[in-house]
Design a protein around this nucleic acid. Structure first.
Lengths: 182, 182
DNA sequence: GTCTATATCAAGATAGAC
DNA sequence: GTCTATCTTGATATAGAC
């Protein structure tokens, strides 16, 4: 699991950035290679096709989504940790860079919607765990979907919240998750 | 405001369907024209460019978003009606066809993310109205973002909810909106 | 593992006939 | 208002050298 000193991460970073900035349509192999600092040939060695590249973006997204959280905070409940993990996977800041990780999903749905199947499966797994650890499933669902909503409106840049409101709102979500935890 | 017997609606329908089915990347002018039953020349008469077509998709999306709701149901509160309008804009069914209307946003963000600016503005307008009509803004925000979350996970096809659960959940959202209404 | 070609094809857009 | 060419560009992908 040690990080290999290859260009894989640089490529995925470049692809995400391009998808976010110029649009997934123009996340061309030329542009990705240039931004990653390698040639198109080098890129196509790692990812033999455009679809493979997009799948690579999704794999990393799902890995981060399901990576065990260090539960660095007061959240002791499983539900709270799952919410935190979900948040971390998208980046836990409002900053533009934080949204970047989700642009793999945009690239995928733009390239070929059924590429999202593995993501769907991951979401189902996480949601099942989340629900199992909730005493009040409907309230848990409310918190979960509200977090999804927040992350999505931020992804699309239509969030109505300023930073302070956002922080306060996230605290409230965590409180709900903890209250409804088993 | 009478519907003109032109091909505009057919074109937009075709574009949305293609974006949803094969991916926004392959929503080519050729394909859209073919699906709409006209030629590429005819298409480019209505929408002089690809960007114009995507903008057309967004205009229709926003129009539906802000169209006055007939408040056909028990929802008397403004907040409840706004939630209902938001729901209606995306289609109020779980069915595949219902998601279609939102693929204009996918096409836009894939083509050129800043094309979403008018949508951002509309969202701000609606959210401002929604908040103004709420006694408990934070609870209203929770309901609003939960609805956003639901619509987005359905757009991406990652919803954890079956139809029955979904209906029940929407009722709960409406109840929250009404409770927190002025 | 990364590079420089180059082949192939489809995209967006234009011009002008009907 | 819609059609059929046609132009031009930029995309993915391959082949083979380094």
């Amino acid at each position: 699991m040690g990080k290999r000193p290859n260009s894989r991460e640089a490529i995925l970073d470049a692809a995400e950035t391009l998808a976010a900035e110029v649009g997934a349509n123009y996340m061309s192999l030329d542009a990705v290679a240039a931004k990653a600092g390698i040639s198109k040939g080098g890129l196509l060695y790692r990812f033999p096709s455009k679809v493979a590249l997009v799948q690579g973006m999704l794999v990393r997204y799902v890995e981060r989504l399901e990576a065990p959280q260090k539960s660095k905070s007061k959240n002791s409940s499983e539900a709270g940790r799952l919410l935190a993990a979900r948040l971390a996977a998208r980046g836990n800041q409002v900053a533009a860079k934080a949204r970047r990780g989700s642009f793999g999903m945009i690239a995928a749905i733009a390239e070929q919607p059924n590429l999202l199947d593995p993501v769907r499966a991951a979401h189902q797994r996480i949601w099942t765990r989340f629900r199992k650890n909730s005493r009040d499933p409907e309230m848990a669902l409310l918190a979960w979907l509200a977090l999804e909503g927040l992350l999505f409106v931020e992804l699309f840049g239509t969030s109505p919240l300023a930073k302070k409101e956002r922080d306060k709102f996230l605290k409230r979500l965590n409180a709900i998750a903890d209250q409804s935890a088993v």
